[in-house]
Computed example of a mutant assay.
Amino acid sequence: MRWTSALAIYVLFWAFSVFFVLPFGVRTSDEAGVARVPGQAESAPHTFALGKVALRVTIVATVLFTLFLLNYVNGWVVAKDLDLFGALAGLE
């Protein structure tokens, strides 16, 4: 795999990890014991720590990408293993 392909795949893992990590550690104004601003949604976070979220996302993406790369190199799970309907049977 070329390094540019690996970088592109890592960026995809990073982007998908954002949606996995964002809901964790969020506290609303009610949970924080602070009055809400008029017009603020009840579910809106009290504060948003971009640095914390970016660090968490980077860790999750790096772990997932490492597993992906190890699978790519070692061939633990290949397309043939995922072929549930026999579509790849004649391609051996």
Rank of each mutant, 00 (worst) to 15 (best):
M1D: 10
M1A: 14
M1V: 14
R2T: 15
R2M: 13
W3C: 07
T4I: 13
T4L: 14
T4Q: 14
A6S: 13
A6I: 15
I9C: 10
V11S: 08
F13A: 08
F13V: 00
F13D: 00
W14D: 05
W14R: 07
W14C: 03
F16G: 09
V18R: 02
V18L: 10
F20L: 12
F20R: 01
L22A: 08
P23Y: 06
F24V: 07
F24A: 09
G25L: 05
V26W: 02
D30R: 06
D30F: 04
D30V: 00
E31W: 01
A32D: 02
V34T: 05
V34A: 07
A35N: 05
A35I: 00
R36Y: 01
R36H: 01
V37E: 05
P38Q: 03
P38N: 05
Q40V: 02
A41T: 03
A41S: 11
E42P: 02
E42V: 03
A44R: 05
P45V: 04
P45M: 02
H46P: 00
H46Q: 07
T47R: 10
T47Q: 10
F48Y: 11
A49K: 14
L50Q: 07
G51K: 10
G51N: 10
G51P: 06
V53K: 08
A54G: 01
A54K: 02
A54V: 11
A54S: 12
A54E: 00
L55G: 04
R56Y: 08
T58I: 01
I59F: 12
I59D: 00
V60H: 00
A61M: 10
A61D: 09
T62N: 06
T62V: 08
V63I: 15
L64M: 13
L64D: 08
L64A: 14
L64S: 11
L64K: 06
L64F: 14
F65G: 07
T66D: 09
L67Q: 08
L67T: 08
F68P: 04
L69V: 15
N71G: 11
N71F: 09
Y72K: 14
Y72I: 04
V73T: 12
G75Q: 09
W76Q: 01
W76V: 10
W76T: 08
V77P: 05
V78Q: 13
V78I: 12
V78L: 10
V78T: 15
A79L: 07
K80R: 15
D81F: 01
D81K: 03
D83S: 01
D83E: 00
F85T: 09
F85V: 08
F85R: 09
L88Q: 02
L88D: 04
A89F: 04
A89E: 09
A89G: 01
G90H: 09
L91P: 01
L91Y: 09
E92R: 14
